[in-house]
Amino acid sequence: MIFVKTATPEEWKAIASAISTIVDEATFEASVEGISFRGMDPSHVALIDIFWPNSAFQQYECDSLIKFGVRIDEFAKLIKRSEKKDSIEITINQDSMLSIKIENGYKKEYKMRLIESSSSSTPLPKLSFNSKIVLSYSTFDKILSDIQVLSDYITIDTKSDNVHFLGRGDSGDADIALDSKSEGLEELICKEDSLATYSIDYLLKITKAISTVGGSVIAEYSSKMPLRLEFTVAGVGRIHFYLAPRIQD
């Protein structure tokens, strides 16, 4: 049995919409330590890894390891029926139903059917990062949209004192340059020059999904290696988004 309570629905909203960008059905794992999710999109290009520690909840009760599967769109739909100041209680008993209690003024309870949880566990990519870029959420979002106007892909070119975001399409090229003085760039660490290209479609989807929460985005990568984005969402210990690179000619 699981019983967890949060003071606001914002974390659940962010998690549900992040996950819904890569899968239709999500298997969560609840343990004594907290709730986690890990899954890959059907194309095996992106991976999301989430850990939400028990300390971040108002109340957290889970005495054993429990996996539970939900249709993520249905789950998100119900969670979205709450407002910013509503508290959320989620309970799973033995009856393969998940209950969502939303309280603010009066009580509202939804019950949704759980689906069969997947038994396979997804490993994490083994990576070491040569470059780390910390951007304000809104700057990152803007850069992606600016590049997407003419390109399906974004190339990130990081040197010790600046970073370029590049795009190339049929109609022309885009180049967005930031250095330590630029607004929106909060941190830049470059152990080794790094250059890699990624699909904008995936990046925009995940970024838009977590948009309600704001904060900053930590992007880490190495040349021709996967990118890892870390989104800071109050309370949730870890939302990591991994994206495999493209080989450019």
Partner: peptide, 14 residues
């Protein structure tokens, strides 16, 4: 053509 063999898979880095 744009994607085949050019978009790497994340599983390749496990």
């Amino acid at each position: 053509y744009k994607n085949y063999g050019k978009q790497l898979l994340i599983s390749r880095f496990f």
